[in-house]
Design a protein around this nucleic acid. Structure first.
Lengths: 152, 152
DNA sequence: TCAAACCGAACCATTTTGGTTCCATATAAT
DNA sequence: ATTATATGGAACCAAAATGGTTCGGTTTGA
């Protein structure tokens, strides 16, 4: 459908939330969920994936939670998508993000559009790599500095 | 999954095929299917949709088939996607291609990322609008003019 | 009249998504 | 120690989307 999944959307919302925290503070998945209105159980799963992918750090046990593991401008949409949903793949016959063909699509031999479409795929990926969490999160940060830390 | 559906891929292949025909010649869905190795029944459906959307013209009856209804440089990927699959929609809360919100997403009121994500959606759409059939089809056209009409 | 082609509409199996639930482990507070 | 709260890991399921088929109808050239 050429759409992000809800998991990615929820992940973005959660990362935006975490970006609005200061210092080493953590926020639990349940907390993020209730603040943002996202289903808690699903968000828990997403957070685990974000953690496994190294975008957030977890603190276990009571008063635990998550915090960002990288600066927002070091996190881009393409990688984030790869962490919580299947990787971007404009067409089936391109599996790695560089757009190289590795598959054994039977159409490939006579497919008249493989090369140009792979080129488009690479351009799409470049585009997504340029979209950073920093710019998605920007209004949240503004809010953070103007309204004095009401989140949480 | 942020991927085109196979229908869109098949549609592109078919349009590329049609672009390689000269003049007012038509090619039947079955013919395109057997040439390109795409499942015939499904391609028939896709062709109907492309026809309904005005990208190809149909000639009914024996010796009928399809031909392009527009110049390849007047057909862009964003519109084509809209014709054969559900429209591009980076997130749920944006339904029209301009990226304006029209939905009534309950998260909207407290969603911290709606505006930036909509901005990204618009940029994605602009990108897809710039990808024309002409550039996807280019190698086919080269083949057409160099090897003297072997296709079909 | 017949066969080839489009037209319209169901119909179905598989895959993906969205979401829940359960159990195990870690840890702060009592 | 016990308990409440958290993550970690994995299975599980329903709903939606996709990929593909099929059937009956209409048009039209031979």
């Amino acid at each position: 459908m050429l759409a992000l999944t809800k998991k990615t959307g929820y992940g973005l919302i959660a990362m935006a939330h975490l970006a609005s925290l200061d210092g080493q503070k953590v926020s639990s998945a349940r907390e993020i969920a209730s603040t943002s209105g996202v289903p808690a159980g699903l968000l828990m799963n997403v957070m685990k994936e974000l953690c496994a992918a190294g975008y957030v750090e977890s603190v276990r046990g009571a008063h635990g939670g998550y915090r960002l593991a990288r600066r927002p401008d070091e996190i881009n949409l393409a990688d984030l998508i790869g962490a919580v949903e299947r990787p971007v793949r404009l067409v089936e016959c391109v599996t790695d993000e560089a757009g190289e063909r590795e598959c054994t699509c039977e159409l490939m031999a006579r497919c008249p559009i493989a090369d140009p479409v792979h080129r488009v795929h690479r351009k799409l990926n470049d585009f997504l790599k340029k979209v950073t969490l920093a710019e998605i999160v920007e209004p949240c940060l503004l809010e953070k500095f103007s309204s004095g830390q009401t989140a949480g």
